[in-house]
Every structure is written in structure tokens, then in C-alpha cells.
Design a protein around this nucleic acid. Structure first.
Lengths: 365, 365
DNA sequence: TTGAAAGCGCTAACAC
DNA sequence: GTGTTAGCGCTTTCAA
């Protein structure tokens, strides 16, 4: 004798057992299969019986149990988003975009924060993978092989990362870099620094190559500095390194780091952009109201999140998935970049103190 | 004839069917129940058989199917966090805290963003509730009755909100307000404005009462302004209203609004804190590097998230849950508050221009 | 169009 | 300790 009410005493509260398709079937005088079809494939049910079932269901306050539904079908209508650092506003926007798109498509978003470690990232995927229909990996720190292996057994999409032929959505880092270096070059900078982030950052590696290439083309010397922790606190050593390197402009791994650099520079009495220009990446919340407002390569973060979801959704639906979507980046010039000190290439604009950063003894202010 | 491999062609990829407890049972020469016990209640299995099962499981790469596990047991090891505005950094911190605690406890966090509307909030709960063991509601816009009804059928905890006897974690708004009003009073302010947020905000209502009370006690006149949209953009009209009201200091509903007020005030040429002091709530990312740096009532956001999870975890475990946890708020004084214009109560500190805000014609700069 | 029945992978009595 | 046996609530052939 099936006990369909033995659930109430395990959970904290539920007293009234929830209605199942069997309850509805009994009430409506149909089989449970018909009830199931009414919700899963309404077209296969004659309109009037469908009506009847729906009425009873409404009266009983029926709501399908997603777990029970997922077990035989294998589809959970849930997607997982794995991010390395939920504290970075850039990921906030990605999350928001992903969440919106997921909900639109009738999916639920599960979030996993992995804290920059590839171990916990793998663990998170491992844990989530069996309970979701697909997973989006943002700025994954995993190596290509590992990613490929995950892609082998689940619907995967990459965000801010490319790996083999796995569906991905990224911003056009190369073009973004070209815009920045061009911008800086036109302001008279001939010696710039790249403040690197984690070595495992795919975008970081890509940018490094792009900066060197663009610099070579334009006659701009590029100093590779770092790696630095890509958070505000990391700006301290990054700024010090920049000063030590004698560059007139720096490209920070991301806006968080750039903001940290701005603060350290202010503490050390180095004027931005008078003595040093600073550029970030992402255009996060706060980039427009820090002081000076940050010039940055804006990433379409929201769109990144949405697109990543679209990618795995297509894969879930068995549709062909474009291997790689590249979204445009665009340079947002604000107040943290200006003519290079002593610049003669931007005549009439060198209104800044001309004491150049190079000449500052390391610890001076 | 059970088909234990008919799963591969429905999903996009999985070629090798995943091992089940039956596969292990067969290999290890035990029953499926023993395998189940090995993982669910290892103490009930003799050490050597346990070993054998574990070995086979490892060899087969067995990982339990959480869905199948959840169906009979009714426990999904998943928690849902419902937030009104994921774009508010305050909630990021809450999310981070909640996520960490959840993972520590072996739970997965599902996130739902409801966009300030009580309709979508209810819908989100409705949707998530059947697939999670409990839900945390942050800054819920729902009325007490509705919340009580949800609490009736699921393990619920409130964050930034109190309602009846439902477990909740909040910050001590009243004390926070007292600190702010005291701070402002000691700086010579005698006429302050409260820039209200959504009418449905529980914290907002609480603060309103507290401000009026504290003001009355200290002889500070309080102007209730608003409601305003609690985002940066809302700061525009809020700032204008503050200027129009002739107050010398304002308490913004949250930091987002306060930052917007700061910007608008700067645009209109009103000096902060010289002509107007501004206080926010939450102490979000950016509050320390906006200009002037924001004086704010810091909420232990991270802790809020953690505690909310603890609350529902206790409830899930059937343990007694404290009805209401109140975390201390503390005033973080930065640069956006200073002596009131024309103040004589803070002698020697009124070094600011004394043109008071009141005298500014509405549209002037 | 509808129903019967066999699972989905796992848990949890209940026996042995 | 371990095995047997019912389910959990739903989907999905296969017949009728």
C-alpha cells in the first residue's frame, strides 16, 4: 500500500502532502499518464480531457515535482555558472546576464564560486555536473585538457576563455589592446607597463601577446610586470612595480587592480594622469566614480553572461553551437589617461607637472 | 529488461553510461542496499565489505546521482537564496557569505534575482521551493502574511527583514541610526533629511521611525524625503529634493543612492561635506573610493549571508532555530560628513564655505 | 487519444 | 551486517 504522505514528518513543516499526478488522475478519472502528458505534451491530449485535468490540477494546487520529473527524463532545467571570484563586480554583471537569460528560458541558475583555485573549480564542476543540464565556466583557470574532458560529458560553454573547439564567448581582447595602445601612443607614451594577473588567466596571456605586438608595431616599449593578485589590494605592489619600471602608463589586468593602483599612486603622491596614466579592463561598477575616473577597456559583461547561457542552451537542445563568439570590446576613455609627461607629440596638452615617474626614487613621495 | 544505458542519446554527449549502485553491487558481489549504505551510513557496513565497495566504486568512477538520491529522501542538499537586486554590491556580499557557508555544509546554492517586484519574488520562491531544502529571503518585499505562508511549507530564513516569528538575521538599524544621528548632531547639524527607498522596504520603515525618534531626542529636525529608486541613478532626484528641503545632511536609503547623491551634488556645485553631509547604508564596494569617500552605516553583509544559511540549516536539521538574530551595525566615518555649515557647535572646524544649501535656487550650480 | 507498465537511481523499512 | 523489496513522482514506450 503506497504511502503518499510519509513525507511530512521528515521535513520541518509540510503537513498537507502535496498533490501528485495520481491524485489528479483519480479526481479527473483518467490515468496518470494522461495527467503527465497534459503538462509534458499537451498536444497529445484531447482538448476537453486536458481542460478537465487542468481544472482538477488547479483545484488541488498541483505543482510538478522537478526532481521526480528530472529523474526519468534526465533533464533538470537547471544550469550552473562557475565563477572564480564572485567578489569581482565584473562577474556580478556576468551573473546577472546569465541569470536573466536562464530564467527567460525557463531554467534555474545555480551558482558556484571557486575562489581562483583550479582545484576547487574542478570540484565545483564535478559536484554540480550531475544535477544540471549544462554548465557555463567563466574565466576558467583549468587547462584545456581538463576542460575538454568536462565538455565530453556535459554541455559546456566558456566565458572569457577559449579552449579547442568548445563553445565560448569572449571579448575581442586583441582589438581592445590595440585601441588602448593606440590611445596611449597618441598621447605620447612610449614606454608602458602591463600589470599582469594570474598566470592561469587565458585572457591575460592573450593580452600580453597583443600588447607586445601592438607595442612593436607602434614603437612603444612594453614592460611586463607581475603577476599581481587581481584585486584592489594587489594594486599596491603593482603600482610600486610600475614606478620602479619607469613607465609612463600602465595597463592593469582588470579594473579592480587598476583601482588599487590608483589608490597607491595617490598615496605616493604620483599624479594620475599627469605623471602616470592608468588603464583597466572590464569597466566594472565603480570604474566611473573612482578618482580619477578610470579609463578602461569595457567588456560587455552582461552580454557575456547571456551569450554563455545561449550557448549551452543550444547545446542542450541538440542544436549546432558556434564554436566561438567574440564580442567587441571598446575603450572607454575617462580621466586616468592623459598626455605622457614631457610629451612633445601632443603639443599644448602637456599641462602637467613634468617630473617624470622614472626619476622618482622607489620609496619617495 | 532494465535499460541502464538509454540515457546517452538524449543528452548532448554522455557516451559512457554512468555507473550506478547496481553496477557496483554486481562487481563487488553485494546487494545494492549495501552499496547505498556504504555511502549513506558507512557505520552500518562491515569494514571489509565497505572497503571492497569503495574500491569498486572508485574503479568505476562512481558518483551518486543527486537527483535519484533526493527523490526518495526528500532532501536535495540545495538551498535557495532570493535577492531583490543582484546588481547591488551589498547583496553580492550576502551572496558570497551564503555561498561559502552553504558549500562548507555540503550544500549547493541556487540563486534567484527578483528585481524588486514582489510578484516575481513570490514566483521565484514558488519555482525554487520544491527543489531545495530551504530558502533564504534577502530584503524581501513580500508582506508578512505571504512570508508566513511560505514558511509554513518550507524551511525559511529572512535576511534584512523580520516578520512574525520567522527566523531572521538583521543588522541593528536602530542602533546604527542612533550612531548616525549622534554623529551628525555633534557636527552641528540640526536639520537632516532621510532619503527614503522603496515603501516596501522593511529596513527603510524601521529606520524612518528610528531617525524620527533619535532626532526628537536630540533636537534634530528630520525631513522625510522620497521615496527614491535605491540605485545610483536615483541619486539625482534625491539630491535635488535634499537641496530643496534645506537640510544640511542627508541619510540615503543605501550606499548606491548615496553615491548617486554625491555625484549629483558635485554636478550642482554643492560641496560635500562643506555644504551638505551625506551618509549611506551598507558600506558596499566603492563606498571607500568614491569622492568624497562615503560615511556609511556598515552592515556585516558577509555575516548576514552566512547566518541566514545557518538559520535554515538548523531548521533543515530539525534543530531549534532562534527567531531573530541581530548583528551590530557600525558607523564608518569617512569624508562625506563634516561640520554643518555655519555651525558654531564645532568651533574651529567650520572651515568651509558657509553658503548654505538652502539658499541655492533649485536649478543653480 | 488513452492506459498499462516498466523503469529513472537511490533510500529505507523489514526480514534474515 | 546484509539482502529483499517497496516505493519517491514522473516519463515514456507499447498496445489498445
Amino acid at each position: 500500500m503506497p504511502d503518499r504522505s510519509g513525507r511530512g514528518d521528515r521535513r520541518a513543516v509540510p503537513t498537507s502532502a502535496r498533490a501528485t499526478i495520481y491524485d489528479i488522475a483519480a479526481e479527473a478519472g483518467v490515468s496518470s499518464a494522461t495527467v503527465s502528458r497534459t503538462f509534458g505534451a499537451p498536444a497529445k491530449v484531447r482538448p476537453d480531457t486536458r481542460r478537465r485535468v487542468l481544472d482538477v490540477a488547479a483545484r488541488l494546487g498541483y505543482r510538478a515535482n522537478p526532481l521526480a520529473r528530472a529523474l526519468p527524463s534526465g533533464r533538470t532545467s537547471t544550469l550552473a555558472l562557475v565563477v572564480p571570484a564572485i567578489t569581482n563586480p565584473h562577474f556580478f554583471d556576468i551573473i546577472t546576464g546569465a541569470e536573466q537569460r536562464a530564467v527567460e528560458a525557463g531554467f534555474t541558475l545555480v551558482l558556484a564560486n571557486t575562489g581562483q583555485s583550479d582545484l576547487s573549480e574542478a570540484a565545483a564542476i564535478e559536484r554540480l555536473e550531475p544535477m544540471v543540464d549544462g554548465v557555463m565556466l567563466a574565466s576558467s583557470r583549468l587547462d584545456d585538457d581538463r576542460i575538454a574532458r568536462f565538455a565530453d560529458r556535459t554541455n559546456l560553454a566558456l566565458c572569457n576563455r577559449q579552449a579547442g573547439r568548445i563553445p565560448s564567448v569572449t571579448t575581442d581582447q586583441v582589438n581592445g589592446i590595440e585601441q588602448v595602445v593606440g590611445h596611449l601612443h597618441s598621447l605620447g607614451h612610449r614606454r608602458i607597463g602591463l600589470l599582469g594577473g594570474p598566470e592561469t588567466s587565458w585572457a591575460g596571456r592573450l593580452r600580453r601577446r597583443a600588447v607586445v605586438a601592438a607595442g612593436g608595431r607602434l614603437g612603444v616599449t612594453v614592460q611586463l610586470l607581475g603577476p599581481f593578485n587581481p584585486i584592489v589590494a594587489g594594486g599596491q605592489s603593482a603600482a610600486d612595480a610600475a614606478i620602479g619600471a619607469g613607465v609612463t602608463a600602465v595597463l592593469a589586468h582588470n579594473d579592480l587592480l587598476a583601482i588599487g593602483v590608483l589608490r597607491r599612486l595617490a598615496d605616493r603622491g604620483v599624479h594620475v594622469p599627469g605623471e602616470m596614466s592608468v588603464v583597466g579592463f572590464d569597466d566594472i561598477f565603480g570604474a566611473d566614480f573612482c578618482v580619477p575616473a578610470l579609463t578602461t577597456v569595457a567588456a560587455p559583461s552582461h552580454e557575456l553572461g547571456r551569450t554563455a547561457v545561449d550557448l549551452v542552451l543550444a547545446s542542450v537542445a541538440g542544436q549546432p553551437v558556434p564554436a566561438s563568439t567574440v564580442l567587441p570590446a571598446h575603450l572607454t576613455v575617462r580621466e586616468s589617461t592623459g598626455p605622457a609627461p614631457d610629451s612633445r607629440t601632443a603639443p599644448g596638452q602637456s599641462r602637467w607637472r613634468t617630473q617624470s615617474a622614472q626619476t622618482l626614487p622607489p620609496g619617495s613621495r
